[in-house]
């Protein structure tokens, strides 16, 4: 946790809730673990079903702190709770470019987000496992990602090839105004680019300030009533101990 924290302290910093969506085993968790672990602790074992990962993204003018929510496997039986989507400002919808059905599923999740999530949510569509389609580029990385390892199903083991063309997916993403990238969690290709693009796409007005800027207007706050909520929050960690700790403040 060394380098990213000490970089240019005075920039304004804001938290952004980002949710992961997509079919099981497309590489959701591994994308995030690549993004998060790459910056520090590269040898850390991948975590299956982590509740949260957080990572800062430094932009020229501000720092975005992603609070990344993993599905914890709840997508397997289509059993995500409304609280998962609530107040999410960004979503990463992941499919596997070697599995056509996973894009169908991704489209379903995009529709679900448009139905359930805040209106201004930034959605990035990500085709993962690019390494499987590039004959040359794949140098094997031993700490390959946990539940995304393609070995599980055994469907497409032998002939691994692209089943979703860049053009088709891009066309769909443009139609729905989604950010679009093809990535490899395994090689790290394009992974940080996805998060930087999301960070850049989040409108300044929808950012609820970290410590400083408290104003959080915008439609999202109006819809969810989250605007004035922060000052009404009761700190359950305040019991008995000193409040200086600021346990769960945002």
């Amino acid at each position: 946790m060394a380098d990213s924290t000490q970089a240019s302290a005075p920039k304004p910093s804001s938290s952004v809730k980002l949710v992961l969506l997509g079919e099981a085993a497309v590489g959701k968790s591994s994308l995030v673990l690549r993004f998060v672990n790459n910056d520090f602790q590269p040898n850390k074992e991948p975590t299956i079903g982590a509740a949260f990962l957080t990572q800062k993204c430094q932009l020229p003018s501000r720092t975005i702190k992603f609070e990344i929510w993993d599905t914890a496997g709840q997508e397997r039986f289509a059993s995500l709770a409304p609280m998962y989507y609530r107040n999410a400002q960004a979503a990463l919808v992941v499919y596997d470019i070697t599995k056509a059905s996973s894009l169908v599923k991704a489209k379903h999740w995009v529709a679900e987000l448009q139905r359930q999530a805040s209106p201004g949510i930034v959605i990035a569509l990500v085709g993962n496992k690019l390494d499987l389609c590039e004959e040359d580029g794949t140098t094997e990385t031993p700490e390959d990602a946990g539940d995304a390892a393609p070995a599980e199903g055994g469907d497409d083991e032998d002939v691994v090839a692209r089943k979703v063309s860049f053009k088709d997916a891009k066309a769909y993403a443009d139609e729905e105004s989604l950010l679009f990238f093809e990535t490899s969690a395994k090689t790290g290709h394009n992974v940080s680019e996805v998060f930087t693009a999301i960070a850049n796409a989040i409108p300044e007005t929808s950012l609820k300030g970290g410590r400083a800027a408290a104003a959080s207007g915008g439609t999202q706050a109006a819809i969810s009533g989250a605007g004035a909520g922060q000052e009404s929050r009761v700190n359950l960690n305040a019991r008995g101990d000193n409040k200086a700790q600021e346990g769960c403040a945002c």
Binding site: M1, T5, A50, A51, T54
Partner: peptide
């Protein structure tokens, strides 16, 4: 907390907890 920070370190980047 997964990384054993005792709870105060939640806000640091990269810290996660899980099973």
């Amino acid at each position: 907390a997964r990384d054993g920070g005792g709870g105060e370190e939640d806000e640091d980047e990269g810290v996660s907890y899980g099973p």
